[in-house]
Simulated assay, not measured.
Amino acid sequence: LLETKKLIVESAFLETSTTPLYKKIIDIKHKATKLGIKQINIFPLFLLPGVHVKEDIPQQLQLAQEHLGEEIKLNVLPYLGNQTSLVHHILQAQFTNLPGEGKILLSHGSRRQEAKQATEKIAEKLGALVAYWSKPSSLQDKIQYFINQGLKQIAIVPYFLFPGKIIDTISQEIDHWQKQLSPVELNFGTPLGETPTLASLIVAELLSL
C-alpha cells in the first residue's frame, strides 16, 4: 500500500482471493473519499485481451459502480500487454539469451479469438511458433515439429506474467520431456513479471496518473 495526500495504490485480485474485486473497490472507495479522490483507476495486469480482461473485469466493475453510484468514477486503463513494444522487447531479450535454433512462445490459451490473434501476432514478430498450454496446438506438438526438422536446441519462452502453479507444472513437463528427448536441448525461459523492466513500467504507469 502506497499512500500520499492524493494517491492510493493498492492491489486487488480477480481470483484466488476471499474478497471479490468489486468489494475490494468498494473498500478502496472509503479511503479515497477521505482524501477527496473522485476517480479510481484500474490497471489490469494481464497480457492478452482474454476472458478476464474482456468479460470478468467489466462484470466486477459494473457491480462496483452500482454500489458506488455517482460518488466515484471507475476508469479502466489499457491492460498491461497492450504495451506491445515493451512486451516485444522483453520477449526478444529472452529468446536472444536462450540457446535455441527453434523458438516457441508458450501462452495459456483463451476461448476469445482476439487473444489468440494477439498472441500469434507477437510470435510472428519474434520469429517464433505459438503453443498453447490449455488449447490445441500444444507445446509438445511444436517441440516435435522442430525435432522433425532436425533441430537440436529449442528455446521456449512462457507468455505468462508471474510464476505459479501453471509455470511449475510446465517446467516439470519440460524436464520430463528433456529426459526422453536427449540429445535435443529444451531451454525454458521465465515469466515476464520477473524482469525489472516490466516492474518499472507498472510503477511508471501508476505514478503517471
Rank of each mutant, 00 (worst) to 15 (best):
Q94T: 05
H176Y: 14
I57Y: 08
N97D: 15
L129M: 07
E71G: 13
N187R: 08
E66K: 15
A64T: 11
Y79W: 13
L151A: 09
A131F: 03
L186C: 00
D175E: 13
Q149L: 12
S107M: 12
L105Y: 01
E101R: 06
K179Q: 08
I122P: 01
I166E: 02
A64L: 12
I167V: 04
Q83F: 06
I156E: 00
E114Q: 07
L80H: 05
P99S: 02
E173H: 09
Y159K: 01
Y159N: 07
E71P: 12
Q140N: 13
E185D: 15
L105P: 00
L105H: 03
S134F: 10
E66W: 11
S171E: 00
Q92D: 10
A118R: 06
E114I: 10
P78N: 12
V184F: 02
K121G: 10
I170F: 02
K73L: 06
Y132M: 03
P99R: 00
G69M: 15
I170W: 01
Q94S: 09
K54V: 10
A115R: 02
P163W: 03
G189A: 10
Q59H: 15
K73G: 05
D168N: 08
P163S: 11
K165V: 04
E120W: 04
L63E: 08
Q144W: 13
T169H: 04
G81Q: 12
I156F: 00
V76I: 15
Q92C: 03
L161E: 05
A118L: 13
W133C: 04
D168Y: 01
V76R: 14
P136M: 07
R112W: 03
K73E: 11
A93S: 10
S138L: 14
L151D: 09
I90Q: 00
N148Y: 12
E55S: 13
A128V: 06
Q83V: 05
L126R: 08
L74S: 12
F162N: 08
I170V: 10
G189L: 02
H176T: 14
T190V: 14
L106T: 01
G69T: 14
H176E: 09
I174Q: 09
L106S: 02
S85D: 08
A123Q: 08
G164F: 03
F162R: 03
I154V: 06
T119M: 14
G127E: 13
K121S: 15
L151W: 09
V157S: 11
H176A: 12
K125S: 12
Y79N: 11
N148W: 13
E185R: 13
K179D: 06
E120M: 00
F95D: 05
T169K: 04
L181P: 01
I154A: 07
K179F: 11
I166T: 10
Q83T: 09
L105I: 06
Q65E: 11
I90Y: 04
I170L: 05
Q62P: 07
K165Y: 10
K54S: 12
A93D: 09
A131R: 01
R111T: 13
Q172A: 04
H67R: 14
G109M: 11
E120A: 04
Q113D: 12
G69N: 11
L161M: 07
Q117R: 11
Y159R: 02
D175Q: 15
A128L: 04
S85F: 09
L61T: 02
